[in-house]
Simulated scan of single mutants.
Amino acid sequence: MKKDLTIRQILLIALLLGTTIVVSCKKGDRTQSTMATAAPTFPMPPRSLANATERADYVLDNVWNGIAGIDTLTFRDSGEREQFLVNYFGFGVLASERARRASMSKFFELATPAMDSVILSIAGRYFDTPESPLFNQAYFIETYEEADKLGILDYAQQLKLEDRRSLYLKNQAGAAAEDFEYTLANGQTSTLYKTSPGKKLLLMFYDPECNACKDVLEFLSHSEPIQALLGSEVSWLCVYVEHDVETWRKSLSHLPSYAITGRDATGMVTDQSLYDLRVLPVLYLLDEHKRVIIRDAYPQEVESYFAALQEAKP
């Protein structure tokens, strides 16, 4: 299961407000003599910049100043190189899109092809891997788009970018969720949009043999704010997206009796990539019209949302 967003941002803010770190180098047909000979350092933001985003923007706007080129050999070893790039991406989490894109574009202009490969690989591991504490599809897409503008991506990487971009644009907060058909245990079928009309819907894609899925089911089943609204204002739809029907049927008794349980019998959800299900479970909270309230939600986010709903009641 994914790590807590708040903890992630607290660590990054602490980094921004207190430290300097080490950087990297790379690009094109430059000779080694034009490359930086030591790992660059992140600039310290002026004290006048109190806002975390402004401080992160300052770092990204100035990190490549005075750098003639960036190569893999700029660093003592691969560990130092990766640590710098992880820190660099960490600043990007808090920075504006403008600063991230401009800094990344400059990086690719300075970098050798070897460093192009390194940063694209690290971006994939940290931004495109759901288990990563820096997982962020928007930042992954930005990185690959800036590389693509300079003709750096090969055909396979271009296909990966298009796939990630297509998935990312689906089911955004405020947009209508992708509709799909599911099959109930009794063999009847329904669709997302026919499920519990007039109620909010907690949509969960899961696998009963997945330990993280069990943990989330346990959390949701025992959360007082969630339980207080389930049934009256909110319905819960659990959709099995694997192929072992027997395992799914045996697991139904372990699900809450008030949850609507179905499976992706036609493979519609997975085959058409309607939702990004690379790591289960996946949670969405939808409004009464099946518009997305929270996308790819953490259980704690759902709980906080429901608690706020209760507090707002007269």
Results as ranks from 00 to 15, higher is better:
F108E: 10
F108D: 03
L110F: 09
L110V: 01
A111G: 03
A111D: 03
T112K: 05
P113S: 03
P113E: 01
A114I: 04
M115I: 02
M115F: 04
D116S: 00
S117F: 00
S117D: 14
I119A: 10
L120Q: 04
L120V: 08
L120G: 10
S121V: 10
S121L: 14
S121G: 15
I122H: 06
I122C: 00
A123V: 11
A123S: 14
R125V: 11
R125W: 04
R125A: 14
Y126M: 12
D128A: 15
D128Q: 03
D128T: 03
D128E: 09
T129F: 13
T129M: 11
E131P: 04
E131Q: 07
S132G: 07
S132A: 15
P133K: 06
N136F: 06
N136C: 10
N136V: 07
Y139M: 08
F140N: 01
E142M: 08
E146H: 12
A147M: 08
A147C: 11
D148C: 09
D148H: 11
D148G: 11
L150D: 01
L150N: 02
L150R: 15
G151Q: 06
G151K: 07
G151P: 01
L153V: 03
D154S: 09
Y155K: 13
Q158V: 03
L159F: 06
K160P: 01
L161V: 08
L161W: 05
D163I: 11
S166Y: 09
S166Q: 14
S166H: 11
L167E: 04
L167T: 05
L169I: 12
L169S: 12
N171S: 08
A173D: 00
G174K: 14
G174N: 05
A175K: 14
A176F: 13
A177V: 12
D179C: 01
F180Q: 08
Y182H: 01
A185H: 12
G187H: 11
Q188P: 00
